[in-house]
């Protein structure tokens, strides 16, 4: 126990000397997909025009399986860096929120698919492991 305390002290002092600084950066692409706007879209009721007025023009317009698919997306990037004197560690983590609105041939919403991956996005600086 007596040996442990000086060793811990040395490690802390060394860590403080070696640490030059930290850096946190963040970048986003696109606007946040508001849940209240998505909740306002009702299957088999809401029209294409109403979707456009609620969410604006889609980021991507697809034609899939005889239907129109409006895709809205938002990207979020978080960068954490640990800057030491001899070595720097950085990690860039990017995740996206995606909303797909599937519209049938009559111009009525058939399905709404939303997932928000960015909610769990954290700042990380350790590049090893998962």
């Amino acid at each position: 126990m007596l040996l442990f305390k000086p060793l811990a002290g040395i490690i802390i002092v060394l860590a403080l000397i070696m640490t030059q600084g930290c850096a946190f950066s963040r970048g986003t692409l696109g606007e946040d997909i508001r849940s209240e706007s998505v909740d306002a879209i009702k299957k088999a009721t809401t029209t294409k025009a109403e979707v456009l007025s609620l969410l604006g023009a889609p980021d991507r317009l697809l034609q899939v399986n005889g239907r129109d698919v409006f895709q809205y997306y938002r990207y979020d990037a978080k960068v954490g860096s640990l800057l030491l004197i001899l070595i720097n560690f950085s990690r860039v983590s990017i995740k996206s929120d995606d909303l797909f609105v599937i519209i049938d041939r009559e111009g009525i919403v058939e399905d709404v698919i939303l997932s928000k991956r960015t909610d769990g996005l954290k700042f990380r600086f350790w590049p090893f492991g998962e």
Partner: peptide
Amino acid sequence: LCVTFVGCNVVRFTLNT
């Protein structure tokens, strides 16, 4: 180790899980 790691940068970039 010091000579080897002089001016080292280690960067990881991940998109989605």
